[in-house]
Each structure stands twice: as C-alpha cells, then as structure tokens.
C-alpha cells in the first residue's frame, strides 16, 4: 500500500554504516523541524487567537478581560479599516496586474534566440534581489519632485508622485512592479521554454496567425505556472508593508498591514490587533483557495 512506501536506508550509506536506523534518521531531521514549527509558528498563532477575544494590551499591567467577539465587531464596523482594505485591494489589483503584464511580456521577448540572453536575464533579475527597504529609500529619491530623476527624464516638472494623495498609491505600485516583475518573468520563462516546439510547427503549417497561436497554444500551456506566480504575488502584495511605509505616509496608501502595525506597536492594542491579523489571515486564505481551485481547473484542461 502507498501508506507504507517509506524508502529504506541504503545499506551502503554512511548513516547505515554508523548503525542508524530509518527511524533514527527520521527523528533526527523531522522532530526538530516539527518542534520549531510548533514553538514559533503554531503556538503563537493559537495564542494570538486567544488574545483576539480579549482587551489585552501588552503595554500595561492591567488585567485583561474576555470581550468575546467585541474586537471583531469594532473592527468590521470601523470605516477607516474598511478604507484600508479597499486601498489594499486596489493596490493588489494594480500591482499584480502590472507585474503579470510586464513580467510575461518580457518573458515573451526573451523566449527566443538573442545574443547575451543569459546576461540580460540575470541583469533583469537584479531588482528582485534587493531589500525592500533599500528599494523604498532610493525610489523615494527617484520620485523626489525637486531633484528626482523620474520627473527630469519624463519632463514632468515638479510633479508630486508621493505627496499627491491620488497618485501616491500608484507610485508605490509602480515601484513594486519594477521590483517584482522579474519574478513573474522568471516563472513565465520557465513555462514558455517548456512549451513543445512541435505545437508551434504544427500551427505554422496550418497557417495560424500569431494571435491565434498565442491564445490557443502559448497562454493555455503557460497558464498553470503563471497562476502560481500570481498566487505568490497576490499574497505578498496583500501583506505589503515596507514599500508603502517607507515611500509615503498618505492616508490613501495606508494598506491594511500598516494600520495593523500602528495598532499593535504604536497604540499597543494587542487584543484588537490580533483580531485584525486574524481577519487578514482569513482573507488571504480565502483568496488563495479561490486561486488554487481555479489553478486546478486550469491544470485539468
């Protein structure tokens, strides 16, 4: 039966020669991992679930009280919180769409024989390897209305990217697109190079146009891997903090994780912020599940 297919240790291996059994090896590697997960992930997760039903504040010695669902009720009735969620949704849509368009587009361009392909791909991957805080700090300089290079290069005069409440969120998303399109590009490139060449040859023989080929061959075959890229980017964009926090402090860019940070570590409303974190967690899980369902459907096709 499949449940008992644990592979046995190769008798010639060093571990076997030292007299270690399969069980010993399993315990050696898995138990510490499980303990680590329980102590640092599962336990805090459950502990904070408990806190979310109390009015506990980490900054005081006052005894906490059980308040039931009061925190959740307050949060879900707070128009500022809903506004934060709306901002986050807008940010996720703009930023992920931008990354997919740019990343997939660049991958299409790179998916052919061109000189220095390897070098170009590596260079294009650089933004993604930088730290978020560093990217935030130097894009702040690039956007600066007085001496920033973006306004200079585009001839925009003193356009205020980050101080204009209507533009600031797009400016943050643009930075995110710059940073993370390479990630989508990399995955798409892997997907594109896996598309069998004979399909294109067959299409060429049947005189299919480039658009037809793209929508009927390329996109369906790359879709599963593209979906994975989208899932990752959506989850990340939903949780985004660093870029938005560093670039600007406009209320129109206060994504939900910034509000959460303020509530937890400036206001020290520990119980309330645990509740907000749980609301976020449920949302991320829900969104991811919808995606995964869709991904499975795409794979079946």
């Amino acid at each position: 039966m499949t449940t008992l297919t644990m592979t046995t240790l190769d008798p010639r291996s060093r571990a076997a020669r030292r007299g270690m059994s399969d069980l010993a090896i399993r315990n050696l590697f898995i138990i510490p991992t499980i303990v680590f997960l329980i102590v640092f992930n599962i336990f805090p997760l459950l502990y904070s679930l408990g806190y979310s039903f109390t009015d506990f504040r980490a900054s005081t010695n006052a005894p906490w009280n059980f308040v039931g669902l009061e925190n959740y009720r307050t949060l879900l009735n707070d128009p500022f919180i809903w506004n934060n969620f709306a901002i986050t949704a807008k940010y996720v849509i703009v930023s992920v769409t931008g990354q997919v368009l740019v990343g997939f587009g660049v991958a299409m361009l790179l998916n052919r024989e061109i000189p220095f392909k390897g070098l170009i791909t590596t260079l294009l991957l650089l933004p993604m390897m930088l730290s978020m805080a560093v990217v935030g700090l130097f894009w702040k300089l690039l956007y600066d209305p007085s001496f920033g290079i973006i306004n200079y290069a585009l001839g925009l005069g003193r356009f205020e990217w980050l101080s204009n409440p209507d533009v600031a969120l797009y400016a943050v998303a643009l930075t995110d697109i710059w940073m993370w399109s390479p990630f989508v590009m990399l995955l798409s490139l892997a997907g594109l190079s896996a598309v069998p060449k004979h399909l294109y040859e067959a299409a060429a023989i049947d005189r299919a146009g480039p658009l037809y080929t793209f929508f009927r061959i390329t996109l369906p075959l790359v879709a599963p891997i593209l979906m994975i890229a989208i899932i990752f980017r959506t989850m990340e964009a939903f949780k985004t903090f660093d870029l938005a926090y560093i670039l600007t402090s406009q209320p129109t860019t206060e994504v939900i994780s910034i509000r959460l940070y303020k509530m937890a570590f400036q206001e020290w409303q520990t119980g309330m912020s645990c509740a907000l974190a749980y609301i976020m967690l449920v949302m991320v899980i829900a969104i991811t599940n919808i995606y995964v369902k869709y991904l499975n459907k795409v794979k079946e096709r």
Binding site: D144, P145, S146, R158, E160, W161, L162, S163, T248, S249, Q250
Partner: peptide
C-alpha cells in the same frame, strides 16, 4: 492649511 500652500513641492511627509 493655508501655510501648507506655501511649502516646497512634495512637503506631505
């Protein structure tokens, strides 16, 4: 608010 109108560009943070 009126004084804010006389600040340098990008003076929102």
């Amino acid at each position: 608010r009126e004084l804010y109108g006389f600040t340098p560009p990008g003076w929102a943070k």
